[in-house]
Design a protein around this nucleic acid. Structure first.
Lengths: 234, 234
DNA sequence: GTGTGGATTTCGCGT
DNA sequence: ACGCGAAGTCCACAC
């Protein structure tokens, strides 16, 4: 990895056209050729970048550029798309390279999958007498997170989100529409919908209620607590 | 901005739990205190990070850590949430700091707003005799990108996307439902929907057609070309 | 401040 | 490879 601190201006042309005026920034050139332009603030997102696969060529500045004080020009081209990143270097404060090697990568734990597993395990959180049919119940337009039965053997489809947005309600609505065409699932009446999330946004709740979908707020800590209490019994 | 190349392991606890095994990585500490952990590949996204506002404390390793070869521990805490990032440094290869100053920021051009402006200007792209009513037509659930009339004075609502996904079709469907409750707009029949995008995904197209929404693929270059040809006339 | 929609989104999974 | 859904999404703009 090459790390350069330099006064530079940047021009990107591809999906959009973007320009960065002259300022001091950090330039990162990764082993795969990708280039990142970072400022000293903002978030983890660079001001500008070129995604791999791509290649970088160092050009000599032309006459006009030289007069303006440009010392070097980096031309970064994407391997497949018509994307170019042109970095004009006016002053290089630091230029170093380091051998990093391949990264073993991130180990994650505790996202939507975890919520789904916990809720499936403690399906009675949704109501007395609920029983799990299956997780990831397949339909033509995608898998339903959880399919279960209520105390009266009525079918219930559950959509789980970390944050409950309108999109999630729409998604569940499409599933319900499809599931309700299956006679085997509707023997005890139409399939009910449950929208379960750690946080349900007001507009999403309104839409859900309007469509007869029940909203359930999930307490991740409480679910995990149940799990722990259970495991301590064995 | 502080830039450190070091052998390190990283543990994040917050919205999720994540761990990075020991490896050589680049650590970036920005002026606002945010910390980025980058590997020598991937995209612009760091392997792990802490978003501002946050504060970093350098701790001495405890006994167990010292035995394992840990030289220093960075504890990064988020200012508002219960998020912590713990970076254990085993060997520091480089540690430098640079004054970058405030960045003037990115100047953008050519995204959805541009597409909308171009299509509004050349509304007959949608059909002979079409006339623009207005852009960003306000409704209770948000603005409709373009509202126009067809040759028979029927109202047409247009949703514009760079990439046409199912979400966009749902969005337009909600708008149409609302617009069709307005008698003033439905004098010449129900409001028609047009889903316009540079690329329309098959599933989105299927859903749109199923709902009687017309799909139009936008040619950004062609629209811009019309614009140029027009401006040359004046 | 909060909520909503877009993104040069990126990432990962399943077909 | 492609399509689709999630993300510790981030970010700007409207209310």
């Amino acid at each position: 990895m090459r790390v350069v601190i330099a006064e530079c201006s940047v021009d990107y042309e591809g999906a959009l056209v973007a320009h960065l005026p002259l300022a001091t920034r950090l330039l990162m050139v990764k082993a795969d050729g990708s280039v990142l332009v970072h400022s000293d603030g903002g978030s983890y997102k660079p001001l500008n970048w070129m995604a791999p696969p791509c290649s970088m060529t160092e050009l000599d500045p032309d006459e006009a550029e030289r007069e303006e004080g440009v010392q070097a020009v980096w031309l970064v081209r994407h391997g497949k798309r018509e994307d170019t990143l042109r970095i004009r270097l006016y002053a290089v404060h630091s230029d170093t390279a380091h051998e990093l090697g391949v990264d073993p990568g991130l180990v994650k734990d505790g996202v939507e999958a975890q919520l789904q597993a916990l809720l499936a395990e403690h399906i009675t959180t949704l109501g007395e007498g609920y029983t799990l049919l299956r997780r990831e119940y397949p339909t033509a337009i995608g898998p339903v997170d959880i399919l279960c039965k209520d105390a009266d053997s009525g079918t219930v489809a559950v959509e789980i989100k970390r944050r409950g947005d309108i999109d999630g309600v729409e998604q569940l609505t499409r599933y319900l529409e499809l599931l309700n065409r299956d006679p085997a699932l509707t023997v005890r009446g139409p399939v009910q919908g449950v929208f379960a999330a750690q946080l349900i946004r007001p507009q999403a709740r309104t839409l859900a209620v309007d469509r007869g979908i029940r909203c359930v707020t999930l307490d991740y800590e409480a679910l995990r607590g149940m799990d722990d209490a259970e495991s301590r019994l064995f």
